[in-house]
Design a protein around this nucleic acid. Structure first.
Length: 290
DNA sequence: CGCCAGGACGTTC
DNA sequence: GAACGTCATGGC
């Protein structure tokens, strides 16, 4: 990978296996939106327009000082071609391509992932994005960028200060008390970063102690923000797809499913995202009769 | 209109 | 410990 710095942009070159549009829209992050042929969004309070061409990915709006932050967010330090190569060797998994080719698992800000995936439960991606956007408009720090008004994802303190009624009013439904409780806990000192260095099972156990966070959301937070690349969120799509891919559509027991998951190794979470993309593209019917 | 969604909680068996 | 019903909301 090479980096070219200018005053108001950071350009990353020499990256393979990166489909920007796909990575931004695959359901791992909810705040990117298509804009002028690229993706407009805001990470850790820094607004940016991401553009991809044959030379690589350029982060417009990024200062030289934030180059490292963006490289980390985009997970540019990981060798995805090695992962895709390994996945392609397993005929059960290889079906995920070409749909999943180029997906990178971003390293989101942990508090944003925590709240976003609480909102995600029993919900669809389109509506999740809308709710998260309204949440940011409600209490996130406003930022002017390219004539657009964006809002940073709210800090724990600002979100904790919002009433439960206000959270319900933006469409969070029955999840409002979960959001409130999580924001208050983090605002009053709970350090999400400590989960980064814990074992997967210890970190899971920690997150399960949050009111409204179960196994699926816990694994999403660990995979999408805390670099636990072997966390494996199982939602209805993954459940359907795993049964189709590993058990020929028959109903597998939970233990058998978990066994299949652990056989996928230390990057199982990334493979999970490939499977998720494949499953959504194929659809429910496509998975059942493939 | 009914079914579904990046599920978790409370209750009951 | 597994199997239910319930939860709020809008996309399709």
């Amino acid at each position: 990978m090479d980096i070219r710095l200018t005053e108001n942009a950071v350009a990353f070159g020499g990256i393979d296996c990166f489909d920007l549009e796909k990575s931004c829209s695959c359901g791992q992050a909810f705040r990117w939106r298509p804009y002028a042929g690229g993706q407009l969004g805001i990470v850790r309070g820094e607004a940016a327009l991401l553009m991809q061409d044959e030379n690589g990915v350029t982060v417009h709006g990024a200062s030289p000082a934030s180059a490292g932050m963006w490289a980390h967010y985009l997970d540019l330090g990981r060798d995805y071609s090695a992962i895709e190569r390994a996945v392609s060797k397993d005929p059960r998994l290889a079906v995920c391509f070409p749909e999943a080719h180029g997906i990178r698992v971003f390293n989101q800000e942990p508090f944003e992932a925590l709240i976003s995936f609480i909102i995600s439960q029993n919900n669809n991606i389109k509506r999740i994005s809308g709710i998260v956007e309204r949440l940011c408009a409600l209490c996130g720090e406003p930022v002017e960028f390219m004539g657009e008004r964006l809002n940073a994802f709210p800090s724990p303190e600002r979100l904790a200060a919002v009433s439960e009624d206000a959270l319900t009013a933006i469409g969070t439904g029955y999840r409002a008390p979960f959001i409130k409780a999580a924001a208050e806990r983090v605002a009053s000192g709970y350090d999400l970063e400590k989960l980064r260095d814990m074992s997967l099972s210890e970190a899971r156990q920690e997150l399960l102690s949050f009111y409204g966070i179960g196994p699926k959301v816990a694994d999403c937070v660990l995979l999408f923000s805390l670099q636990h690349s072997d966390a494996f969120p199982i939602d209805v799509w993954i459940d359907r797809a795993m049964k189709a891919m590993f058990f020929e559509g028959s109903k597998a027991k939970k233990a058998e499913l978990y066994e299949a998951v652990s056989s996928l190794g230390e990057y199982s979470g990334i493979i999970q995202q490939y499977i998720f993309q494949y499953a959504r593209k194929l659809g429910k019917d496509g998975l059942e009769k493939r």
